[in-house]
């Protein structure tokens, strides 16, 4: 049974399907916002299969074992982190004290995958992209972690299920700590390297940054890594700020019945898609920032407000 959980549902296979759907959803929303028709539903699947079937070129001066394994590590880390975010119930069987920290840690690995790949790529765009990945990491990672810390302080637990239970009893954290919610969304945009924070692989400046030289299978894995990370990030934020499987009134009505997991599951998927929708709107509406502007912006408009939010929680909590 655990093997089924890990590999098929809600594990790796489901994650892939959901990630591809989310990618389609994202591209469709952006295309509609740009007054275009957008791709058909099977597009991300076709892209992935095509990339997997294409010739895999490794530049002759690259470190072969390294570049072959590193993208796999990235995907594996994201897939592992997915096990700890509750998909349909707040009593998640993989849950343990501190799982929030583990998820946060696993979600930083894709950035390091890019750093390594850029480092081992002979392309100058790769090296510039690597520098930008690292610089950007300092910009978004601290506020993102702090934004998830705020609800954890309020619920006094590092366990995602405890946060869910807290939201069942009170309000969703998006209402209790709205600043933290917004900062978390912004941090997620930075983590996923999307507009306006797509600086490490800004197409018109440095082509694809660290990914420029990688073709076929490796590029497919990198793309999958990003789309799965999108889903994990969206589900994580849905769980921490939007109550995860919890729906007001409905959850209480169906509690204990056989449809309860299904309702919870649908709630999580819809909330995650809502987060993806927000990301798409941000992507369509904004311009890419420059790396120095991005770091400054993150410090003033993310780190500073989130510290105030945490201060507020600590003061209110101690009263």
């Amino acid at each position: 049974m655990p093997l089924f959980y890990v590999l098929i549902f809600p594990g790796f296979l489901f994650l892939l399907a959901f990630a591809l759907f989310a990618e389609y959803f994202d591209r469709k929303v952006v295309a509609r916002l740009q007054n275009r028709q957008g791709p058909p539903w099977y597009q991300p699947l076709a892209d992935t299969i095509k990339l997997l079937s294409k010739e895999d070129i490794i530049t002759h001066d690259a470190d072969k074992p390294m570049v072959n394994t590193v993208p796999l590590f990235g995907l594996a880390a994201v897939a592992a982190s997915f096990l700890y975010v509750p998909m349909w119930t707040k009593d998640w069987h993989f849950s343990f004290q501190g799982d929030l920290i583990v998820v946060l840690y696993l979600l930083t690995i894709p950035a390091f995958v890019l750093v390594l790949l850029g480092w081992y790529s002979p392309n100058p765009f790769g090296s510039i992209g690597t520098g930008r990945v690292v610089t950007q990491l300092f910009g978004y990672e601290v506020p993102f972690a702090l934004a998830l810390l705020a609800p954890a302080i309020a619920a006094q637990s590092w366990r995602i299920t405890d946060l869910l239970a807290y939201q069942d009893d009170h309000y969703w954290f998006a209402l209790i700590t709205p600043i933290a919610f917004l900062v978390a969304i912004a941090g997620l945009v930075g983590k996923l390297e999307r507009v306006p924070f797509d600086i490490p692989h800004a197409e018109t400046e440095i082509v694809e940054g660290p990914m420029t030289e990688y073709t076929g299978r490796k590029y497919a894995l990198l793309k999958l890594m990003f789309s799965t990370e999108t889903v994990v990030g969206a589900v994580l934020i849905a769980a921490i700020f939007l109550g995860g499987p919890h729906l007001p009134w409905v959850t209480k009505a169906v509690a204990g019945t056989a449809v309860a997991p299904l309702v919870g599951f649908l709630a999580v998927v819809l909330k995650a898609l809502f987060i993806v929708f927000l990301l798409s709107v941000i992507k369509a509406a904004l311009t890419r920032l420059r790396i120095d502007q991005m770091v400054r912006w993150c410090l003033t408009w993310l780190t500073f407000p989130i510290l105030i939010q945490i201060l507020y929680i600590v003061i209110v909590g101690s009263m």
């Binding site: 275009r36 791709p39 095509k50 294409k54 070129i57 197409e203 420029t212 030289e213």
Partner: peptide, 22 residues
């Protein structure tokens, strides 16, 4: 590639690097 003709509906994407192109 623009809204009037929109090649993305056939799955066509413009890629910057020849490494990613078919």
């Amino acid at each position: 590639l623009m809204p009037r003709f929109d090649l993305e509906r056939f799955g066509i994407l413009l890629q910057g690097s020849p490494r990613h192109a078919d």
